[in-house]
């Protein structure tokens, strides 16, 4: 503590530039302040060693850093100046500046998609995913079928009706649509094919009842016949009243009448 203000004097004392008279004065003062001769010599050595410590020169690294910054600045300033610079380096620089942000966005989007995907598809267990896919496929098939049934072409409508034949079970919507087709499609053969398709779903009581109710709504002998024969095949006793009502119809085709009476007698 005591020496702090005096240290400057020590430096002056050992400085070669200090005149000898001043040096002598300083030595008096320093000795008075409590420094010993030995201490002063130690300090002198210390100061000399400080002088000898190497001061780093501005090296190559500094140059490179400086030129890099310069190049960046010139690149920013415009292509005209950049062209005169180091070409491969500038090429990479440009990639860095122009492509990297885009790549960054792309990766961010992919990641976002992945995150959303995992969030939106809950409990993505293999089995349930397959079930869902199957459900979606059958939904699409239904849509195709409904659209085809609206077509003007009877061949397209036949296609729709036979498409439904492949399904193991039909949901309520399909059953309703097929029932409506059975009762109101303008083409006999489409209605006939609909009987054939609905005959695959007769485990469903709604389908059975619908088929029975449809018997007396049919004008075409071909469809009347197909429905009666189906009732015979199913041994559907509850169809008897409707079949009897059909037999009461005086306009019933004679060949169909024969078949229907035969079916009724077998029930």
């Amino acid at each position: 503590m005591k020496r702090d203000p005096i240290e400057a004097l020590v430096m002056d004392y050992w400085d070669d530039a200090t005149p000898p008279e001043r040096k002598r004065e300083l030595k008096q003062e320093l000795l008075a302040a409590g420094y010993t001769e030995a201490e002063l010599n130690d300090l002198k050595r210390f100061l000399i060693s400080l002088d000898d410590m190497p001061v780093p020169e501005p090296g190559e690294e500094l140059d490179r850093a400086f030129y890099r910054m310069l190049a960046e600045e010139t690149a920013k300033a415009g292509r005209k100046t950049a062209r005169n610079g180091n070409k491969p380096a500038l090429f990479w620089k440009r990639i860095e500046q122009q492509l990297m942000p885009k790549l960054g966005y792309a990766f961010a989007l992919v990641f976002l998609g992945w995150v959303l995907g995992t969030w939106v598809t809950p409990g993505a267990v293999g089995g349930s995913r397959m079930e869902r896919m199957a459900a979606e496929i059958s939904e699409m098939k239904e849509m195709v079928m409904l659209a085809q049934l609206q077509q003007d072409s009877p061949s397209e409508r036949l296609k729709a009706v036979t498409l439904a034949e492949e399904w193991t079970d039909a949901d309520a919507k399909i059953v309703t649509v097929l029932m409506r087709t059975l009762d109101s499609d303008p083409n006999v053969n489409v209605r006939l094919a609909t009987v054939e398709t609905l005959s695959r779903f007769t485990d469903n009581p709604v389908v059975r009842r619908g088929l029975i109710e449809s018997i007396n709504r049919q004008q075409s002998p071909l469809v009347q016949l197909a429905l009666a024969e189906l009732m015979g095949r199913l041994q559907e006793e509850s169809a008897k009243p409707e079949l009897n009502r059909l037999l009461e119809n005086k306009e019933l085709n004679y060949a169909v009448r024969d078949r229907v009476s035969h079916v009724v007698s077998m029930l």
Binding site: P154, S155, L158, K159, T162, N187, V188, N189, V190, L192, A193, S220, P221, L222, N253
Partner: peptide, 24 residues
């Protein structure tokens, strides 16, 4: 062709058929 009769014969001689189109 999608053809239907009740009391008549059906006679068809095809020169070609559309693939994939059901007929009756």
């Amino acid at each position: 062709a999608v053809v239907s009769t009740v009391d008549g014969n059906i006679l068809v001689k095809f020169a070609g058929v559309t693939a994939g189109a059901p007929m009756a």
